[in-house]
C-alpha cells in the first residue's frame, strides 16, 4: 500500500463496517416455489448501517422478507437493486467469510458433532490441528464438551442448535448471519440460548445480523433493532438499544427494556399509537 492512498483513506469519513443501501428484491414470476403469476416485491428500498462487533436484529412479521435480505447480504441470491458492502467488499457473491445459523440446526447426520463443527474448515482447507483444538474449545464454551463424538440424532434440539452455532463460529467469520436460529426452541431453551449468544459475542467480538420475529429477543440481544413492515418489507424504524452490558434475564424487567419494547411494538403496528397526553388516538 502506498502513502497517498493511505492519506486519502484517513481524509474520508469513517465508514460503517456493514452498509445496506437502497436494497430491493423483486422475485420474478416463476422464480418462487409458489409459482405466483405476478412478480413479488420481497424487499423495498431497505437501508441501514452497522458497526463492527454490533449485533443488529432484523425484526418483522413472518415472511416479510427479512430472510431474503439475509440471503442477499450473504451473496446467496442476487438483489434487484441497491448495494451491500461488508468490510471493504461489495457483496455480489458469497465472500466465504460468514457464519450461518438457520432456524433448523441443519447438521449432517453422517458426521459426528466435532466433524460437523469442522465442516467449514474442511471446505476452506484449513482443517488442521489448531482447528480441531478450536472446535473443542467452542464445544466447551457451549457446554457440549462431553458430546464431541456423538451423532446429531443423539442430541436434543437445543443441543443441536448449539453445535450449529459452533459450526458458524469455527472459521472466525467477520460476520455471523442468524436466521431465526432459536425460533423452533421452547421458551426456556430459547432464553438459555440468548444468554449463550451474549456470552459468545463478549468472548469473540463477532458482528451479527440476527433475524427474528420475537420483539423481546430482538431487544435483549441487540445494539440496534431494524423493524420491518409487512411485505413488501420496508424499514419501518431503526431503534438503537442502549441497554447496558453485561445483560442478564433481569434486564428484561428494567424500564428501559419495556420502553424499547413499546417503541418496537408501535413500529410493528401491534400497538395503536398514542397522542402526547398518553391517551389512545
Amino acid at each position: 500500500m502506498d502513502r497517498p492512498h493511505l492519506e486519502t483513506l484517513t481524509i474520508e469519513p469513517q465508514m460503517a463496517f456493514g452498509s445496506i443501501k437502497n436494497v430491493s428484491k423483486i422475485f420474478s414470476a416463476g422464480e418462487l416455489l409458489s409459482r405466483s403469476a405476478e412478480p413479488v416485491v420481497a424487499l423495498d428500498d431497505a437501508s441501514f448501517d452497522f458497526e463492527q462487533g454490533q449485533l443488529v436484529s432484523l425484526l418483522g412479521p413472518s415472511g416479510c422478507g427479512k430472510t431474503t435480505l439475509l440471503r442477499i447480504v450473504a451473496g446467496l441470491i442476487p438483489k434487484t437493486s441497491g448495494s451491500v458492502v461488508i468490510g471493504d467488499h461489495e457483496v455480489v457473491e458469497p465472500l466465504g467469510d460468514y457464519g450461518f445459523v438457520f432456524q433448523s440446526p441443519s447438521l449432517m447426520p453422517w458426521r459426528t458433532v466435532i466433524d460437523n463443527v469442522l465442516f467449514p474448515m474442511e471446505i476452506l482447507k484449513r482443517n488442521n490441528k489448531a482447528a480441531r483444538q478450536r472446535a473443542g474449545e467452542l464445544l466447551e464454551l457451549v457446554g457440549l464438551s462431553g458430546f464431541v463424538g456423538a451423532r446429531p440424532h443423539q442430541l436434543s434440539g437445543g443441543m443441536q442448535q448449539r453445535v450449529a452455532l459452533c459450526r458458524a463460529l469455527i472459521h472466525a467469520p467477520q460476520l455471523l448471519l442468524m436466521d431465526e436460529p432459536f425460533g423452533a426452541l421452547d421458551e426456556l431453551t430459547r432464553m438459555e440460548m440468548n444468554d449463550l449468544l451474549l456470552r459468545i459475542r463478549r468472548e469473540t467480538g463477532a458482528s451479527v445480523l440476527f433475524v427474528t420475529h420475537s420483539i423481546s429477543e430482538a431487544i435483549y440481544l441487540s445494539d440496534k433493532v431494524i423493524v420491518f413492515s409487512r411485505r413488501p418489507a420496508r424499514v419501518a424504524q431503526e431503534i438503537p438499544i442502549d441497554l447496558p452490558y453485561p445483560r442478564s434475564q433481569r434486564t428484561r424487567f428494567t424500564p428501559a427494556f419495556t420502553q424499547a419494547e413499546r417503541i418496537a411494538s408501535e413500529a410493528l403496528g401491534v400497538l395503536p399509537p398514542v397522542d402526547e397526553k398518553g391517551t389512545p388516538s
Partner: peptide, 9 residues
Amino acid sequence: LLELADSLR
C-alpha cells in the same frame, strides 16, 4: 446445507 456450502464458496 447447500446454502452453507455456497456461503463458504
